[in-house]
Nucleic acid binder design. Structure first.
Lengths: 198, 198
DNA sequence: TGTACATCAGTGAACGCGCGTTCACTGATGTAC
DNA sequence: TGTACATCAGTGAACGCGCGTTCACTGATGTAC
């Protein structure tokens, strides 16, 4: 166990974790390759052996985030029976994830990787997360006979994404900034739309 | 009419317009004080006679944006009679504004000015825009007897803000990227939630 | 089991860049008398 | 109407900064024989 091994061992993973930590502590804007390398205790050129450029690192961080989000949403799916309730709680889980990991959430939707086609793994992870929401919408039969399903997915996604975005941008007050507050607020907002439906 | 007057005349306004143009053409991230000054044809130190720092310029740009948004939403208010319809179209106007001015919209909600207290004019403009939505929600009696009004405002805001954000981030497909497409999509999404209400 | 060698994963110096901000300055404008 | 002077709104040089990226390099590891 040498104190300073020349080879890191799993630098790729360490860099991603460092990026997540820097985002959490200093904001998503502060995630630079040099800073990430510094945080991981490695020279600033080392990351280039693992990522072709800065954007690739961001994409890897976002990928991890989408996998965690998909996981959180799926956990709800497995634990609740009523399809309607399941949709509601999947939405709450989405918002709670964002509020619990605001800077990672920002990274996941940052412009730099808005086009995920160069990053197939990221693309797949994002699609998985979205698929969870789609399943919940489909099972709950949110739409009437006249509304098509894609629009229902878009509407449901927009609601929870809007809640998440507004809360982490501080636009809905401080009470909503905690995971518990966010859950309560988003649950109430979801019910404001859906409570009177049959 | 000298070709290069030493004094600009209305540099403050010109700088704000330059910032809007740079955002539109190159993205909100590209708006720097030096670039804005360059675009306005003025030395890079000149802006400091009109704005104490970079953030103050961003705040001024956001203020203009919020005033335009409030104006668009209010225009709907005056032109539609049915309160329910009015709320829907106010929401559509919100999304259409965002899609028509995506980079300015981004600037309006950028983290740098998330706390608007140091910028009273910005704060007031943002409050005005929000008030328009609040009036529309109140008039439409969105909530039932059991849901309180603030949560209805939050829910309505979240829905349209989510639509706006997802569309300008390219997450809802290319058809939604045009103002017409965005209007159609957001109208459909709003109806997906509200069409079956009494 | 040992050795030669290819490959891999680091290092550290260097590049050029644009940025925000400060400073001493100067030209233009407005005002008091 | 003219003049002295304060104030205002520009200029351009300079500061230090962190960034992404490239490069020649070197230490460590793995593999063929």
């Amino acid at each position: 166990m040498p104190s300073k091994p020349y080879h890191h061992g799993d630098l790729r993973r360490a860099l991603i974790e460092a990026a997540v930590e820097i985002a959490r502590e200093h904001g998503a804007d502060e995630v630079s390759l040099r800073r990430v390398a510094r945080h991981a205790g490695v020279s600033h050129a080392a990351p280039y052996h693992h990522f072709p450029d800065r954007t690739a690192l961001i994409a890897a961080v976002a990928e991890v985030g989408f996998r965690a989000l998909a996981n959180d949403v799926s956990a709800v799916e497995r634990s609740i029976e009523s399809p309607r309730e399941r949709l509601h709680e999947a939405g709450v889980a989405y918002v709670v994830f964002a509020v619990s990991n605001p800077e990672q959430f920002r990274l996941m939707f940052s412009r730099e990787i808005a086009d995920s086609t160069p990053y197939p793994d990221l693309h797949a992870a994002a699609a998985d997360a979205r698929a969870g929401l789609e399943r919940a919408v489909a099972a709950s039969r949110l739409g009437s006979g006249t509304t098509s399903e894609p629009i229902d997915v878009a509407a449901a996604w927009a609601l929870v994404h809007g809640l998440a975005t507004l809360i982490i941008d501080g636009q809905l007050g401080n009470e909503a900034a905690s995971p518990e507050g966010a859950a309560a607020l988003s649950r109430a907002a979801i019910h404001a739309f859906w409570s009177q439906r049959s």
